[in-house]
Write a protein that binds this DNA or RNA. Sequence first.
DNA 1: GCCAAGCGTTGATCCAAGTCAACCACCTGG
DNA 2: CCAGGTGGTTGACTTGGATCAACGCTTGGC
Lengths: 246, 246
Amino acid sequence: MRATVPITVADIKSACSQCNLLELCLPFGMSETEINRLDELVGARRKVKRNQHLYRSGEDFEAIYAIRTGSFKTDVLLEDGREQVTGFQMTGEILGLDGISTELHSCNAVALEDSEVCVIAYDKLEELSRQIEGLQHQFHKVMSKEIVRDHGVMMLLGSMRAEERLAAFLLNLSQRFTARGFSPAEFHLRMTRDEIGSYLGLKLETVSRAFSKFQESGLIAVQQKHIRIADLDGLRRLVHHPVNSR
Amino acid sequence: MRATVPITVADIKSACSQCNLLELCLPFGMSETEINRLDELVGARRKVKRNQHLYRSGEDFEAIYAIRTGSFKTDVLLEDGREQVTGFQMTGEILGLDGISTELHSCNAVALEDSEVCVIAYDKLEELSRQIEGLQHQFHKVMSKEIVRDHGVMMLLGSMRAEERLAAFLLNLSQRFTARGFSPAEFHLRMTRDEIGSYLGLKLETVSRAFSKFQESGLIAVQQKHIRIADLDGLRRLVHHPVNSR
DNA sequence: GCCAAGCGTTGATCCAAGTCAACCACCTGG
DNA sequence: CCAGGTGGTTGACTTGGATCAACGCTTGGC
């Protein structure tokens, strides 16, 4: 179970203390002195080209990854080929937490565009977080946040209708782009309709139709992967007070 | 946001070292000396009656809970009243991990029968797991396992058809009962059809019909909440090689 | 021990989303 | 710069599961 494509492991020392993603990433909430000690943790960066795997289901787990640039999807495959996208990750977010439980990765992580991650050796992370209280606490928060996010996705998949799901998805993206200093209202989708559909438990045609419907009703302007949200509150209303809930 | 029903906090000291759920619970994989130190961690037990809340969404997070006897469901509510059950938990499993990220609980935990939990103060847990490597490692595994489980549920909700979902659900229960020394083939459901439906993203009528269909085809025998699995492999085939997958 | 409420089953009908199909609009690489 | 391929849109039709409805069975609270 090795990646079929050779992967560049850059030998550049990354420094959390120098990173502008600080407040989105693992070091969030830590003191300056604590963060300085983090620099010993992040070994190397690794570049992953579009459509390449960062890791695959079944591979040995050794490290978690913080996204420095670019974005990823994670997915789980069934024997018969069905794919379930379990998440889309952007800069500052952590990949690989699934691997801790069995020491094998349990999902695939694929770059949606040319990307770069910081490699955080897991044994070192455990060691250091026994020494640095702030790191321990923050790491636990990151894991817990992932659990809460997952529960939100279950809500989406289990209890919402197609248009509510897509509206919730767009609002979530908007909020995350905002946190990264980008426009809340205008962004570029990194994933295909098929991938959005898989994530939302819908077929790509249904996603496409929902986009068109939102456009007709003046909520958004879509042009391929470019999205402009014209009526944020309108989308919010769709999620919270759907026209006709199940 | 307080529980409306008074809750008994038993003053009995629990001892992990004496507990027969050891290998299913937080202490799994720890050395004897490590486990002895755990006893200082588990403060008290708490009894929760059927249909009572262990905690509610929005309440302050202070502790996680290990189930000693009984079982629970966790759920998330939407403003308009829609409920999504996010999991069913049984003995040895840990509740409350959702609260770490914001220091507020983000879901509700409700007892499905009269139950008892061990209360694990979270600040103490962090402190002790900085000292006991085995505890730290095991706690991380528990969180990671929850993330992996959640991804499995996403697969279920996003990519499987009604009967596959129910078959997967029964197999999962069977496996967990087995791990607890009960029969893999015969057990009592603690939850209603409506709760199963919510968990699986189906209506209760659909759950009921699927049960009847499984019975007709000789896979199981159902009588209300009592389930006997007659053909485990048949159920497995349903999940892995569905007659007609999406 | 009885009875009402909650839970479960089954049938008839409906509809949201899936499926199938045709076509369009971009990139992308030669 | 053009050709082929991938990704996206739209329409027609189908269908799995939801909805609505009626009824039967436990069960637990008095």
